[in-house]
Write a protein that binds this DNA or RNA. Structure first.
Length: 219
DNA sequence: GCGACAG
DNA sequence: ATCTTGTCGC
């Protein structure tokens, strides 16, 4: 996990778009992960009328899913929320939180899309490439793509398609509940990503990793 | 030009 | 994301 030598953060969308066009080719869409003993969830929250960004990381052991470490980082907000550029708003704080960890996660589940993004570099892919760790995008709603209705049973899914390309899947994480959007982040295949997300689910809509990170980030 | 639009 | 009470359903 490389947390140093991370490029300085950008200020304009033009600049951000240029970076996305460069980094999109560094995303590895196949399995390059070793044995997964630690899975992390990352999430971001805001304070003081969005002027403060707070990132939380929760590390769970796998497959037991018990919390083994957590970290919280709070920094000034430097970028607005613009659909398609979420990573530039949230990653700086996430990096700071990751620096506090004593355990290097084998896999990270991010709140948001991976390659299911207009330029195939959603927050999960962007973070994965920057820190060189396998990541999965787990979003609560859609950014781009089309899909058919997903059967109501937990575990069923349908492909998410954009311009004829499968960019992820829409997964029913719990019976009869609004599905979640799973996509490759970095160094993992779509099938493996689905399996790990399933492995992090218990009785709720969201994976335990993101549930822990959510709760932490909103303190 | 119009509508959609992760968190 | 965040603001917020009750309420519907398993």
């Amino acid at each position: 996990m490389n947390l140093d030598s991370i490029p300085a953060w950008v200020k304009t969308v033009e600049e951000a778009k240029k970076i996305q066009e460069e980094l999109r080719f560094k995303v590895i869409q196949e399995d390059r992960l070793s044995e997964v003993n630690y899975v992390a969830g990352v999430d971001v929250g805001f304070k003081n009328n969005y002027t403060i960004t707070q990132a939380a990381v929760a590390v769970l052991n796998y497959p037991e899913l018990t919390l083994v470490e957590q970290a919280l980082a709070t920094i000034p907000t430097t970028f607005p929320y613009i659909p398609g550029f979420l990573s530039f708003r949230e990653i700086p704080a996430i990096i700071e939180a990751l620096k506090q960890l004593t355990i290097t996660p084998d896999l990270i589940l991010c709140d948001g899309q991976g390659i299911a993004h207009p330029r195939r570099l959603g927050i999960a892919s962007h973070l994965g490439v920057l820190i060189d760790v396998p990541t999965i995008g787990v979003a609560k709603s859609i950014l781009i793509g089309k899909h058919q209705e997903v059967p109501p049973e937990k575990g069923s899914w349908t492909p998410l398609i954009d311009r004829g390309e499968t960019i992820g899947v829409v997964l029913r994480s719990r019976f009869n509940v609004k599905p979640i959007y799973i996509s490759i982040g970095h160094k993992i295949s779509l099938n493996t990503a689905i399996n790990y997300v399933m492995g992090c689910l218990t009785k709720y809509r969201l994976p335990e990793t993101t549930r822990w990170a959510d709760r932490l980030a909103s303190i």
